[in-house]
Design a protein around this nucleic acid. Structure first.
Lengths: 152, 152
DNA sequence: CACATATATTTGCCTTGACAAATATACTTC
DNA sequence: GAAGTATATTTGTCAAGGCAAATATATGTG
């Protein structure tokens, strides 16, 4: 193997792949943390609860978009989480098409347990980055996101 | 809404969500670019071809791990890509369990078309980052990946 | 107001991928 | 080299998610 092909094969992962790898690892780690607490929740459900806990009640579509989930898939996740008693579908005051999805007390209590998993995973993930680097990583990712979304 | 709750609700996306959003956007953009060329390929298949084109022939398991795909799912993707003539399953010289998966000429030709998509999407994604920032983003992501994989 | 268009949610259908079991082969140890 | 263990690939099964159609309601226009 000559130096050129060495350089070639050791080429860095492109952004697309790398993001996928990191995300998959975060999902795995988070689900392991959750399971270790004896809780039965997939990452998607974790995200839904997190979003509701942090942002408060909102509609299904907004919720779906915020966790990058299809509307149909969201309906089914809500079915599950509602049947387990973690959230409620309330009618929206102004818009009779829409829902106002809110955590129940049980859901809020569950989130309190999950906070712990959340913190541990984020801490583990970022442990090799200092405060400045964490900010930068965040900032860069948001800039990439906007660059792709606003394709002028 | 008081100032505290404002600060709370404008809290930054956590890494898990943000990575998912960015990745989803990259997948969408790439698939749109591919479709715009009249090609029929999902992002996963794109990744498989890319990996083979860049790293050369390799086994199915290694390929699967490199694109973060389950082994079973890989078998089916290989079925498809092989039936469409883009790659070949050759027997591995030393290990009779394993495969040596390699691109056909047609596969290589296809990749030449895809390079274009690849470049355009990466360029678009990173357009608001300068050279240093791109390197940092890459570096940070790899550090996060390793931090999660080698849990001390 | 009537009509056309847009949005929120649900449901059906289908594809993709995860997980586990089966099979074949390699490696390790006694 | 026989037995046990580990790895590569394939296949079956199932759940999750994407897409499109259906329904209900909202909004904008003449």
């Amino acid at each position: 193997m000559n130096s050129e092909s060495i350089a070639y094969s050791s080429q860095r992962e492109s952004l697309g792949i790398l993001l996928g790898l990191v995300r998959a690892e975060i999902v795995r780690t988070m689900e392991a943390e959750i399971a270790a607490k004896g809780l039965e929740l997939r990452f998607t459900q974790f995200l839904i609860l997190k979003r509701l806990a942090r942002q408060g009640p909102m509609g299904a579509t907004e919720l779906a978009r915020s966790v990058e989930l299809d509307g149909g898939a969201m309906t089914r996740q809500l079915d599950q989480l509602e049947s387990r008693g973690y959230l409620r579908r309330c009618p929206h005051a102004q818009d009779r098409r829409a829902l106002r999805i809110e955590l129940t007390d049980e859901g809020t209590a569950l989130w309190r347990q999950l906070t712990d998993c959340n913190d541990r995973v984020l801490k583990a993930a970022q442990r090799s980055l200092n405060a400045t680097e964490r900010k930068q990583l965040h900032d860069y990712l948001e800039r990439v996101l906007h660059a792709l979304r606003d394709k002028d």
